[in-house]
Amino acid sequence: MTASLLYPFILVAGVLQALGNSMNARLRDRLVNPWLAATASFLPVVFLFATLFIALPTPLPNAESIRGMHWYSALGGVAGAVAVFGGLLFVDRVGAGPFNGLAITGNILTSLAMDAFGVFGLHRSGFKAMSWLGGLLMVVGVVLVARSSGTRSQDRGGGLGATALYPFILVAGACQALGAVLNAELRGALVNPWLASTASFLPVTFIMALMFILRPTPLPRRDDVEGVRWWMPLAGIAGGVAVFAGLLLVDKVGAGAFNGLLITANLLASIILDHFGWLGMKKVRAGPQRLMGAAVMIAGILLISVT
C-alpha cells in the first residue's frame, strides 16, 4: 500500500481528534477539576487498548526487540500530553486562538525538522524547499484561523505575562510532534499495536491521576456529575485514535505529512463544530478569514505531501 492511500485514515483520525477535544471541554466543564476530567478521559482509553491486547495478544515482542528499545520510547504518550498540560495551564492566560496557533506551529515545524534529519528511526529526507514552503503556508493558515476566533491574549496578573508564555507553548507543540514519532518507535519495539498503545497511555493516566490526588479541589457538585452525558467520557477514545494512527503510520508517511494531515483535518472539523455549535461549542461563524486560512492550510499540506 502506497503512502497516499493511508491519507484518508489520517484525516479521519484528525476529525476524531477534534471531536475528542470538544468532548473533553464539555467533560472539563462538568467535572470542574481539570485533573479529574483528564483522568476520566484517559482511563477508558487504557481499558479499551488493554482489552484489545488481551483479546489479540499476538504478535508479541521478543527479548531482542525489547532490549533494542530506547528508554525514551515509552514516553511518547507523556510527550504528546504536554500540549494538554499546556492547555490546562496557559489557555486562559493567552487565549484559545493564540495558544492553538503557537502549538500547531511548533508541531509542524518540528515534524519537518525530524523528517529532514531522520531522527528516532525516521527516513532521512534532507531539506526540501517545497515541504518547508508548505509548512510556512500551514503556519499562515493557522494564524488566519486563530485570529478569526475573536479571542484575545489575557494576562490575569501575577507571574509571567501572556507573551512571555509563547516559547513554552511552542515547546508544547513540538513535544506533541515528538510524541507521535516516539509512539511509532514504541510500536516497532513492542510489535503488537494494542500493547504499544496501552504502554503509551498508561504513564499519562498515572500522571493525571497523581495530579488529581495532589490537587483534589475543586470537586464537582452532584448536579455537575448528573449533567455528564454518556458521550463525554469517550473523549479520550476519540482522541486516542490519532495516537493509534501515529503508532501505525508515522514511519510510513513521514512525520511532516502525518502531523500536517492530522492538524488540517482537526482544524477543519473544529471550524465546522464552531460554525454549527455542535457538542455544546460556542457558535463562531466560519467567515471569509477562517475559510481562507483553511484553504491556505490545505495548500500547505499538499506541498508537504507531494514532495
Rank of each mutant, 00 (worst) to 15 (best):
G236Y: 04
L234F: 11
V225Q: 00
W231C: 07
P218E: 00
P233E: 01
I207F: 12
D223P: 03
P203W: 04
L219I: 12
I237H: 02
D224E: 11
T198V: 12
G227T: 12
I213H: 02
T198C: 11
L202C: 11
A199M: 15
G236S: 08
R221I: 00
R222N: 03
L234S: 14
E226N: 14
S200R: 12
I237E: 03
S197H: 14
M208G: 00
M232H: 12
T217D: 05
A209R: 01
L214Y: 01
F201N: 08
F212K: 04
P203H: 08
S197N: 15
R221Q: 13
P218S: 07
G227L: 04
S200H: 13
I213V: 15
D223Y: 05
R229L: 07
P220I: 02
I207S: 02
V225T: 06
M208D: 01
P218F: 04
L219F: 12
I237F: 06
P216F: 03
A199W: 09
A238Q: 09
V228T: 09
E226M: 13
P233A: 02
A209Q: 05
R215Q: 04
P203R: 13
I237N: 02
L219W: 09
I207C: 07
R215S: 03
A238G: 05
R229V: 02
F206K: 02
S200M: 14
M208Q: 11
V228F: 03
M211V: 06
I213G: 10
